[in-house]
Amino acid sequence: MDIGGINPVILVASLMVAAVPIMLAALGELVVEKSGVLNLGVEGMMIVGAICGFIAAVGTQSPVAGFAAGAAGGAVLSLVFAFLTQVMLANQVATGLALTLFGLGLSSLMGQGYNGIKPPVTAKVPFGPLAEIPVLGPIVFGHDWMVYASIALVACVWWVLRATRLGLIIRAVGESHEAAHALGYKVNRIRLGCIAFGGAMAGLGGAYVSLVRVPQWVDGITAGAGWIALAIVVFASWRPWRVLIGAYLFGGISVLQLNLQAAGSGIPVEYLSMSPYLVTIVVLVIMSSGRGRASLNAPASLGQNFHAAR
């Protein structure tokens, strides 16, 4: 069963957990970018979500309350971004970067006094005998409920964007905000909603880091996960199911390289560590070649501000 000293079943099970934060954050950012807004503040929203979720979970001793607070925290922070870019028409790239820096500082301030406290345990979903099934048990039935929720959210976003009127409106706003405006859609309000959704998802991802993956609070806990989420959106060429694949790939490689080391494999660590980024670069090159169908998928109005008076 073991391949090179690594049990593939356990590997798949742990990569599913490792991928949850970046998958949630990337999924939120995908919706934001689909509506034509580039929010580079994912890292900041994640870490604010991580500390808000942590504080709420410790205060109420309920992980569910923690995740809700994490999502709310991320959403509130994203509204700062929404106000600056949609109302004040500030530059989105600069505002997004500022949001990350602000979020890192804010989370550090909020987290004073929360170092070294243990949050309540997020229980595994009790599948009973199902979890005992070999191979399938640990992979499919051995996780906490957030893992299943994250996959359900991917399906949900995919369905909304593809098959509903709301999805059509979001895509229309992202492709051509002027045309959408001419049709009578409130471009900035729709974008504001998408930004808040993206913030909530990033906050949820952050809360997963501080409540499940690391279970504690330390400054800088997300350690760059938000940037990886941004890369996954591009890697996925703005398609929800590819976000899932991208997150498993990125999460999987980071888990795999640690497992390979623990198993004493001879493959140099450095190659594995850089492989996800190499894959991203390759995807970017293919996309920007202009030939592949994927290249048509970037929202046409991405990163451009809109004002009705123009």
Binding site: S14, A18, V209, Q216, G220, A223, V255, L258, A262
Partner: peptide, 12 residues
Amino acid sequence: FDPAKEADAAKA
């Protein structure tokens, strides 16, 4: 310093 990675390493 990368808590998530450190946790993953311990887990592995």
